[in-house]
Amino acid sequence: MSKFIIIFITAFSASTLTGCWNRRELDTLGFVTALGVDRTGESKIEITVHVAKPFAIARATESSVSPEKAFWVVSSTGSTAFEAIRNLLLQSPRRPFYAHNRFIVIGEECARAGVGDILDLFARDGEARRLARVEVVKGSTARQFLEQVEFELERLPSEGGQGISRYVQEGVSAEPVDCTLNSFLRCLEAEGVEPVAVRVEAVPKMPAAPGSVGDLLRDQVKISSKHGGAAVFKGDKLVGWLDERETRGVNWVTGKVRSGILVIDQPNEKGKLVSLEILRAPRAS
């Protein structure tokens, strides 16, 4: 019995006293909620992240009006995606933590150049979430998109995007595709199937004032994002875009349509339209 106690104490102190190896207090972590990937010149990769600011959120609940943004946008570059992410540590006092990352946003140029090696990192890393959504920004870079995107109804853009993706996934609308990192990679690896990612566009919240141009315009006008359509890949390279109608066709073919609105001409009265709601559709899992 006494021997057992000695062994127990030794083991117990060995396991508790030598240090708390993997302990990460919440206030030492920077929660990354969205992540953007671009390719810059000299074949460098640029990573842009949204890091949530918990204290700003807390203050917001105390006084209803908070001028402070609830997130911090920061970018860093490196020769590979992993290096770029590691370089973020030099700028962030709180260790970026990717387990809550919900979006991987890819700039159009980067997507056209190929994303396989970048996404591979997120597939293999234990921290990253395989259910993060893969989105491609049409006509812009991911950095520009992430720096400006904001939703009126949510303090964190990722929460806003999550809200939209949620009902996309539920199939409220048949137009956008739903694409997680997992399904993207699955299609990438499989023979005979090519991946399709979500197309996002920046939509100006206010129409630009006439006369304001260039940088001024970018600084003043906040943008919101719009999901819809699809980015079509061949291999890991973006080859083109599908509009809403075409995307619905893709969804019909892959059996992903759950619901949505079909607008057709009224058969017996020319010039008038009828909206049909899809209630049930054959599903493929």
Binding site: A99, A123, R124, G126, R129, R130, L131, R166, N182, L185, R186, E189, A190, E191
Partner: peptide, 29 residues
Amino acid sequence: AVFGPTLSSLMLPAFSLARMISIGEFLER
């Protein structure tokens, strides 16, 4: 069924599988 051909690149598929779990947006991973 979950990972398809990407399975062979996974080191510990059981963990990767559990990371896909999301119950009512409350309990995840």
